[in-house]
Amino acid sequence: MTTAKLEDYIHLTQLVQCEALMFGYRGWRKQWGHDRQCGGALVWQLNDCWPVTSWSIVDYYLRRKPAYYAIARVLAPIAVGVRRKHYDWSVSHARDPKTQAWELWAVSSKLHDVTADVELRFISVETGKAIEPSFVKKGIRVVANGTTEISTGYVDNVKEEPHVLAARLWVGGELVARDTDWPQPLKYLPFPERKVQVKMLNCNEIRVTAERPVKCLVFEERIGCHLSDSAIDVMPGDEQVISVRGLNEGDSGQSPLAWTYLGANEQ
């Protein structure tokens, strides 16, 4: 990413924190279902007690940072996870492995089993098109208070173009969880022509769509304004509706909140 704007660098620092904490908490929670290899994790730190540059997930004015939303998603009562095996950065930067294993799972903190449907898509970063058929499995029994392994596979880095693994999970017909895994490192990926659309449906809802994969779309945080989600990855054909409280009636019709995403300056 090449930019001269301070705001872009701020977004990148928050994206790095967001990604790092997501990887950690997602993996630790998964281990709870593996013979209790991990019994919990402390969120450090929640908020600042004075205005400062820090690793908190909520600032002094109680404005949430992208990492707040990333942690909330992976620690939701029911969550889906997908990841490919990432190798030592000092090797993979210079030479990608020919293949990478991936795994797909679900976690639940419910005290009873849940029946769910899961989809995994393989989406080209460049075109937004599927590079192979989706994996779909219906009627999965997600075990109570544990981890349910769903599927595994391999990414062929020789024959396949860079693509996102995009997972979704439904319970009772309701979409309750998403997760994505991107080729790493992100800095080597171009992001032109994402064709993102952000529109206010009313003063309480914002609709987000994109024609190509979008990484970490973040909304402006205002004092007194509360978003149901932010720092989201947006996939083609997967409209996301964000609930918002604290906006005025006159703000409907267009997005009154500023927003950006990785590579926004390439558009």
Results as ranks from 00 to 15, higher is better:
residue 37 Q to Y: 09
residue 37 Q to R: 15
residue 43 V to M: 06
residue 43 V to P: 07
residue 44 W to K: 13
residue 44 W to R: 14
residue 44 W to G: 14
residue 47 N to E: 11
residue 48 D to G: 01
residue 52 V to T: 14
residue 53 T to R: 12
residue 54 S to N: 01
residue 56 S to Q: 05
residue 58 V to L: 08
residue 61 Y to K: 13
residue 63 R to L: 09
residue 63 R to W: 01
residue 65 K to Y: 08
residue 66 P to I: 01
residue 66 P to R: 02
residue 69 Y to M: 05
residue 69 Y to A: 04
residue 71 I to Q: 06
residue 72 A to L: 12
residue 72 A to E: 11
residue 74 V to S: 04
residue 75 L to T: 12
residue 81 G to W: 02
residue 82 V to S: 00
residue 82 V to N: 04
residue 83 R to S: 15
residue 83 R to G: 07
residue 84 R to K: 13
residue 85 K to V: 13
residue 89 W to Y: 14
residue 90 S to N: 12
residue 91 V to M: 10
residue 96 D to V: 11
residue 98 K to M: 12
residue 101 A to F: 12
residue 103 E to C: 12
residue 104 L to S: 05
residue 105 W to E: 11
residue 105 W to G: 08
residue 105 W to N: 10
residue 107 V to E: 01
residue 113 D to I: 01
residue 113 D to K: 06
residue 117 D to A: 11
residue 118 V to E: 02
residue 119 E to Q: 14
residue 121 R to I: 04
residue 122 F to S: 05
residue 125 V to Y: 02
residue 126 E to V: 10
residue 127 T to L: 00
residue 127 T to M: 00
residue 127 T to Q: 03
residue 128 G to T: 04
residue 130 A to W: 01
residue 130 A to I: 04
residue 132 E to D: 08
residue 133 P to Q: 05
residue 135 F to P: 02
residue 136 V to H: 06
residue 137 K to P: 03
residue 139 G to A: 01
residue 140 I to R: 02
residue 140 I to C: 07
residue 144 A to I: 09
residue 145 N to Y: 11
residue 147 T to V: 02
residue 148 T to W: 02
residue 150 I to S: 04
residue 151 S to L: 03
residue 155 V to I: 15
residue 156 D to T: 04
